[in-house]
Design a protein around this nucleic acid. Sequence first.
DNA 1: CGCCACGCGGAACTCAGTACCGCCGGACGC
DNA 2: GCGTCCGGCGGTACTGAGTTCCGCGTGGCG
Lengths: 221, 221
Amino acid sequence: MRDALVAAAFRLFLERGYEETTVDDIVTLAGVGRRSFFRYFPSKEDVVFPDHERCLADMTAFLATDPDDEPVRKVCDAARLVLLMYAENPAFSVQRYRLTRRVPGLRAYELSVVSRYERALAGYLRSRYAGGRDGALRADVIAAAVVAAHNNALRSWLRSDGKGDAEAMVDHALDQVRTAFAERSVPAVTGGPQDVVVIVSRRGTPLWRVVRELEAALGRD
Amino acid sequence: MRDALVAAAFRLFLERGYEETTVDDIVTLAGVGRRSFFRYFPSKEDVVFPDHERCLADMTAFLATDPDDEPVRKVCDAARLVLLMYAENPAFSVQRYRLTRRVPGLRAYELSVVSRYERALAGYLRSRYAGGRDGALRADVIAAAVVAAHNNALRSWLRSDGKGDAEAMVDHALDQVRTAFAERSVPAVTGGPQDVVVIVSRRGTPLWRVVRELEAALGRD
DNA sequence: CGCCACGCGGAACTCAGTACCGCCGGACGC
DNA sequence: GCGTCCGGCGGTACTGAGTTCCGCGTGGCG
């Protein structure tokens, strides 16, 4: 029944447009009563994102497991759960992306969904950073950065019609965030030679030569 | 007329609740026709955020001025414009905050407003980081972090009934973001003999970040 | 004085979402 | 076998947001 409604809705949305399709059109095509539509989907927008509720539950369950991991790594792994849901049905995800991009109402609804993920991540980080100075601030900022990085990679994957390697793109994006928010434990001198590299170069040195030196010293990014 | 509608709307929203107030109630209290309400506000939600449209225009105008500044500093300053708008009318802002917090529809609408600010910041950063490796990703992440930090400080100020020093709180929050995304490579000794530059960098720093620092230090050769 | 533009009000309409009721088929006890 | 309860489903009517169309007054202008 749910699936039949989703299928009927997407057929009409794609061939006629979202706002030009009424709930009555959907239920008559699916052959069910109008009342049943709102039994399964609290609003017309919900039929476009039928699996986010389950994904959000999965994420909160994942964040509730043992918190031995490093907090930032944990929320990055949690964000990857969302990508997996999108990657399960690439064709469906791409269609939905195109639909969402051109309908303002759906964009607004997607924002509310994304914010629920972000709130879940921020809530986890707040509990992990509780007590620290600016813990809540740090939690909110990191959650927002993780979500932004994830969405950046996800959208560029969706724009390429799901052709590229979504997981690699998201991994790369999240790595950028991880390094930006890495614990900055060591000042340059006391950190010891393991953490810090010092490069002395003459002004006027060709850039490529310094870069080659850097690649070797820093471990190739 | 606009102001009369906003005043009437907030009187009813506060004494009766948002969803319990219809547009007809507002226009009869304001003594105008129903049609005129939708002339000034495209939706019922817009009357709750009457000044965001102007603020968004101010922000884009500010970002369009000469880009000599450092990009992250520039978007932080742009975010401060939003705070100034809130700080102009503390009482009104606090009332609106309480109203928004308890009405899901208004929270969703606020998300769409915030995302427009975030998109403005991200668009500016994308143009500044164009050409760099992962420029768009870096732009999106920094924009999200700046918005999250701003909102964190703003909301804690609103929760304190507008009693604290809002600007100081936002400055502190944005400083945290600035240092997190500050170029991690520090020219430790730029003086000495004029033809030598020393760069100290953490292992794991993204290569492009160091390279950009090098370009500046070595004279962009 | 006539004309036009424009801001405003009002009536009627569409559609999302809700409340209420009536129907039917299957489970259960007697 | 039969009455009864129950839960999923459909239909009807309603509220309220947002839109469209039209008609009215007023103020500026030739």
